[in-house]
Design a protein around this nucleic acid. Structure first.
Length: 995
RNA sequence: GCGGGCGUGGCGAAAUUGGUAGACGUGCCAGACUUAGGAUCUGGUGCCGCAAGGCAUGGGGGUUCGAGUCCCUCCGCCCGUACCA
């Protein structure tokens, strides 16, 4: 029979959509807007695998659904096309990254188009396109031209700052700025030279140059942001990363720390991502306290603590080895010990340090400071458990209240002072309780936690020895990368009167500052970034250009606005477009961007909002994280051989030997071979003439001069390409063709039934594991509609799940079954349309409306897997009723069209609608009357008390009296535990039951 | 350690507010048709039992007429994060 031909149909409609620009979206529309966005991909050389489209399919279904529901939907796609891999490839091959990227892009687009997404491709953006990164550079400039006013709690143009300086000096400036800003009067400001005043503003701007301790990755030749470093090595490539002080462009994301935190409460994101961002921002409320030095009470060590209430329990002080006071605090006697410790700490890599958190290490400096509360001397130690980068790099140690301090105190035999009646067993471990009253605690003795904390902070503030303080873990973002393939930073340097170079923005008319050609993609001989090789930049003859480029996250931190107005040459997006599209209603992407892209995007968005460029404070209203689709790797088991010496002593190891040819063994029997100690196995191996005689003979022949009994010592699993395995069965002939290197002369030992089985394991999908499944192959074999339905059917969208094709035939069958509701095979004409114009029965309408309800509810709840199930049920039931009525099928086509756009477009046209318009139709309206004719809810009283209600439906045909009787029967059955399940309800009367 | 999530048949998984647990799909068993196929269709399929019936949502306890769902507790798995003072 002539089945549905997915290849022909899908290609036909994809061409149609492209030619007719079916999914082109207009901005000037009276319809309500809906913006469904996918995290745009980096076009890697490997192409898409079946995991990538998962989220894209979900957002495409929502987009198509919303269109049918009457929304004007913006559903674009683009590419984050700057990035390290293309540059690494350029270094190796000399090929320009733009060329590599272009080739990858072509393949990505082709693969995406194969799946039938309803993207408006005319809105495609690429971050590496000069017409795009012109605006990335512009945002950088705007940040440079802004400062953060803490009083108004927003970013403002730098002119409002200089106005304040000119009128009142620094007195009423409350800004997020560098630590070392000088105080001055308006009069002083007004007589400063241009250079002098400009230099002061540099300390306030939201992008600024700073000597920062950065993550320097020598192998990549660049610095990395905190979120690009994982476990002490670079996220890309896994190269070692060291801490190094360098002059870098930075962004004051810390100015937004609080708003980034509170904004999380206003958006519909998964709790886990929000929590990750909260931890990353790491707000802690506490106090900073100054401990005067014992030798010089005018100098202090400042600490940050969240538990100022424990201050009377301080018995020592710990500084980070990098702390600036270390040299001056170290006494001559301790000089050597301290130097040794610092050296040892430097040698320990970040990794080692994290690996052994248990070991206590530290060294005494020989100096003391004084507890500001009771003037007790406090010995000062160094230890690398204190981090230079957090707080002040110094902690007040309270061994009775903090486990690390406790461990340290035990190790160095320091006193442990109990400070609260709430503390238990502090000779065994620290107790950080906030319960109880304070003891041994001077001015707070007898108080409880809250009062004590307040009392202490007030006291410290009065004495100028401390204050309440909020500390964040979030650091300012390093914005320079010493790489080629990124946006050039639009800055040049000009010396001031003293010969000091000051950064200036290039003229905005010169944007985009295009990436210049270079002869090599490596640093210059003098160690400058690759851009140092460029010739002929406009300002270059007079001044120095900034040679670093922007980090990968720059281009992706505002891209959703460019889709709104992608070709605009004058602004990043027109006011009209932004006012219409506002923000992203649905954003779908992976969790890996939790503390990178998703945080930086919120930061830039808030900045653009402050400066009045965008109307919403948060860019992504709802975020869904699709789960990763893992690969399911297959393994063949190769026998490994040993030679057991004839008289082997206990404990002696068999000598490994090579067989003349590889032997592969099927999964079901591999354990038999793998069990080295099994005497039966050895028996078989040595004596079984049919299979193993040949092996042993071969081995003996291949190992002349070695005496002993050859045996199979174990089996080694080897990855085998999943694409040549079907249902865990491997055809040896196919394997031979695919991997001649492994299988030359190989023997295969199959199951007793003759099949050769392979093992399987779930792993991340990757080329090296031979478990990559290309969506193109699935599309070719089953069709894009089946791929889309199947990926949705696989399980809940947000859950990680392995790819397996076990169920794909079921979906394939469903598509054909659906098709057969419309067509029957006719020997003369091929397929003959069998749709009739008969009036549907109540039963048929019930099936349809049940499905409409379910499909709507499921899309609204993003549970696409169950809605696919409901389509299957619907088609099965209609097939059983042999229902091919237009009134039913037309609506079913619409319900299915978001999921399976190709076949539904085909059938939509076959039903006599204008070809290519299924996406412009109106979604069927659900009507509950077809589901339940009459519904009742009966509150039940048991022993006189209302316990619950029972709900059920009764056929409309029943009379009022019949309903009463039926209700009684149902209640009776319910009491017997046999009540029918179901449904909906209106309170009507109370049934009294006495038990 | 801390934070987030999860635990249901051979497998992927369903189960609105607590209301016949296992929908749907796979797999397996039986049958029909057959141009013999990995097509199509029908029936069966949580476990024990011939059956009646009993037992079942990681283990234990609780609330309730009723618990996969709510509460307590223990066990296990996944993800994120980590000396953050």
């Amino acid at each position: 029979m002539a089945d549905y031909n997915h290849r022909e149909t899908e290609q036909k409609w994809q061409r149609f959509w492209e030619k007719n620009q079916t999914y082109r979206t207009e901005t000037n529309s009276q319809l309500p807007k809906y913006y469904a966005l996918d995290m745009f991909p980096y076009p890697s050389g490997a192409g898409l695998h079946v995991g990538h489209p998962l989220g894209y399919i979900a957002s495409d279904i929502v987009s198509r659904y919303k269109r049918l529901k009457g929304y004007n939907v913006l559903h674009p796609m683009g590419f984050d096309s700057f990035g390290l891999p293309a540059e690494q490839y350029a270094i190796q091959t000399g090929q320009h990254p733009a060329v590599t990227t272009e080739a990858n892009l072509t393949r990505y687009i082709e693969q995406l188009k194969n799946i039938g997404f309803s993207y408006d491709w005319s809105r495609e953006v690429r971050t590496s396109d000069p017409s795009y990164y012109k605006w990335t550079q512009w945002v950088f400039m705007e940040l440079f031209r802004s400062w953060y006013n803490k009083d108004t709690d927003r970013a403002e143009p730098i002119e409002t700052l200089t106005y304040k300086f000119a009128t009142n000096g620094t007195t009423d400036v409350n800004a997020v700025c560098d630590e070392d800003v000088p105080a001055f009067t308006a009069a002083e400001w007004n007589v400063m030279s241009t250079d002098e005043s400009y230099e002061i503003t540099l300390k306030y701007r939201l992008t600024f140059l700073a000597d920062a301790v950065v993550n320097w990755c020598a192998a990549l030749g660049t610095v990395l942001a905190n979120d690009e470093v994982k476990d002490g090595v670079s996220e890309r490539g896994g190269y070692p990363v060291e801490q190094k002080k360098m002059r870098q462009w930075m962004m004051r994301i810390t100015a937004y720390a609080d708003r980034l935190l509170t904004g999380l409460d206003t958006i519909d994101w998964s709790e886990s991502i929000k929590e990750q961002q909260r931890n990353w921002i790491g707000k802690s409320v506490g106090a900073s306290v100054k401990f005067p030095l014992a030798t010089n009470a005018d100098e202090f060590i400042e600490v940050f603590t969240t538990r100022v209430d424990t201050i009377y329990g301080v018995t020592f002080m710990v500084l980070a080895p990098e702390h600036e006071l270390v040299d001056s605090l170290t006494t001559p006697e301790q000089q050597q010990a301290v130097a040794d410790y610092i050296n040892a700490a430097k040698l320990r890599s970040e990794r080692d340090r994290m690996a052994d958190v248990k070991t206590v290490s530290g060294v005494f400096t020989g100096s003391y400071c004084l507890n500001p509360l009771n003037s007790e001397p406090v010995p000062i130690y160094l230890a690398d458990y204190v981090l230079a980068g957090y707080g002040t790099g110094a902690v007040m140690a309270v061994p009775s209240g903090d486990q690390r301090d406790w461990n340290f105190a035990k190790h160095f035999d320091l006193p442990i002072i109990p400070i609260s009646t709430g503390q238990k067993d502090i000779d065994k471990q620290a107790d950080n309780t906030k319960e109880g009253q304070y003891i041994n605690s001077g001015i707070i003795n007898g108080m409880a936690y809250k009062e004590a904390t307040q009392t202490l902070i007030t006291w410290l503030e009065e004495k100028g020895l401390g204050k309440g303080k909020i500390n964040f873990r979030l650091r300012d973002a390093v914005f320079s990368r010493q790489r080629y393939w990124g946006e050039p930073v639009p800055v040049y340097f000009k010396n001031d009167a003293t010969g000091k170079p000051l950064p200036y923005l290039i003229d905005e008319k010169d944007l985009p500052l295009e990436l210049p050609a270079v002869d090599k993609y490596l640093p210059t001989e003098t160690g400058e970034p690759p851009l140092g090789r460029a010739e002929g930049w406009k300002y270059k003859e007079k001044y120095d250009y900034e040679l670093s480029t922007m980090p990968g996250w720059a281009g992706s931190s505002w891209y959703w606005y460019r889709y709104m107005d992608p070709q605009n040459p004058d602004v990043f997006a027109s006011r009209a477009a932004i006012d219409y599209w506002q923000d992203v209603d649905l954003y779908i992407g992976g969790t890996e961007h939790a503390t990178g892209h998703l945080l930086y995007s919120r930061f830039w968005n808030k900045f653009l909002y402050d400066r009045g460029y965008v109307p919403q404070d948060e860019p992504f209203k709802k975020l869904i994280n699709q789960g990763m689709i893992q690969g399911r790797s297959n393994f063949v088991y190769r026998l490994q051989f040993g030679l057991e010496v004839t008289e082997m002593r206990p404990g002696e190891v068999p000598i490994p030997i090579e067989a003349v040819q590889p032997y592969f063994v099927s999964r079901g029997i591999k354990d038999f071979y793998n069990n080295v100690d099994s005497p039966e196995r050895r028996e078989v191996l040595v004596n079984n003439p049919t299979v193993f005689k040949k092996i042993t003979d071969d081995i003996i022949a291949a190992n002349p001069g070695k005496k002993g009994v050859p045996f199979i010592s174990y089996v080694t699993p080897l990855h085998v390409d999943v694409n040549i395995v079907e249902n865990d069965e491997l055809k040896p002939e196919v394997f031979r063709i695919s991997r001649p290197d492994l299988t030359e002369n190989a023997e295969f030992i199959s199951e007793p039934d003759g099949r050769f089985l392979v093992g399987a394991e779930v792993e991340k999908m990757s080329k090296s594991k031979f478990n990559v499944v290309n969506p193109d192959d699935i599309v070719e074999k089953y069709g894009a509609d089946v791929l889309r339905l199947y990926e949705m059917f696989l399980g809940p969208l947000e859950q990680a799940k392995p790819w397996n094709t076990n169920g794909i035939d079921g979906v394939y069958r469903f598509i054909r079954k659906f098709y057969r509701l419309f067509y029957k095979d006719s020997p003369e004409t091929g397929n003959e349309l069998i749709v009739t114009d008969e009036t549907p029965t109540a039963a048929e309408l019930k099936i349809l409306h049940k499905t409409i309800k379910k499909a709507q509810d499921d899309i609204d709840a993003f549970s696409f897997n169950t809605s696919v199930s409901s389509f299957m049920i619907c088609v099965n039931e209609l097939a059983t009723l042999k229902c091919s009525k237009r009134a039913i099928l037309q609506d079913l086509v619409l319900l299915l069209s978001p999921y399976a756009p190709h076949i539904t477009e085909e059938l939509w046209a076959a039903l006599g609608n204008e070809p290519g318009t299924v996406s412009k139709a109106t979604y069927p309206v659900f009507n509950a009357k077809y589901l339940v004719e009459d519904a009742f809810e009966y509150p039940i009283q048991i022993n006189g008390k209302v316990r619950t209600t029972i709900s059920f439906a009764i056929d409309r045909a029943a009379s009022e009296i019949e309903k009463e009787v039926l209700a009684d029967e149902i209640v009776q059955k319910w009491l017997e535990g046999k009540a029918p399940k179901k449904v909906v309800v209106v309170p009507k009367r109370i049934v009294n039951v006495v038990i």
